[in-house]
Design a protein around this nucleic acid. Sequence first.
DNA 1: AAAATGATCCTT
DNA 2: AGGATCATTTTC
Length: 218
Amino acid sequence: MHMSDCLSSIQSPRISKLPREFYLEETLVVARRLLGKLLVHDTPEGRTAGRIVEVEAYQGPQDRAAHSYHNLRSKRTEIMYGPGGHAYVFMVYGMHHCFNIVTRPPEYPQVVLIRALQPVAGLKLMACRRGLQQFTPAIERNLANGPGKLCQAMGITRALNGEDLCAGRLYLSDDGIVVAETDLCRTPRVNIDYAGEARDYPWRFLVTDSPYTSRANF
DNA sequence: AAAATGATCCTT
DNA sequence: AGGATCATTTTC
């Protein structure tokens, strides 16, 4: 039996959720630890899940690339000012969603952007949501290799902004797979050329040899 | 009230 | 290299 079969057949909350404390640490620490974790979404259509292979840290007031730069507080950014372990979902370029995980205690408006997943469960549903006609192995790496694509594949929209990842049907899980220090790399973040100095901060984390990362900046 | 701007993706 | 497309933010 394959891993994907196991995950998709178990619809009860048998998969344990990462606890609140996981999300309250330093944002760069959380970002690095998120590599290898499973992102799971249980919906009426079924379960989809993917292993995180690429993330970016956004570190609040001091970070010109962050939406919370200079402590900008608005209806959109409000969720970032709450406790870690909640979803921050926003729309970019009028057509794509980005899924972020709030980190740290309240009043530290920092997040980790999830940029790419290795599909693990519900691959057919993912392909369907992505508008891909037939599912082929070749298409697997094209399901969630980018922040907008993974939101589409996982069924994540702004309706999930503010969701508690420790309580609901969208959550993170650890299935024991470890990404070793030697298996990851760091680069500057993607598409933030406007951010001055912050443009060069190495706050993007990738699983080096994963074929499921976005191909941006290579 | 109007203009500018994207933490993207897909096609040329 | 450029277009799609719109919520949010900034500027007038």
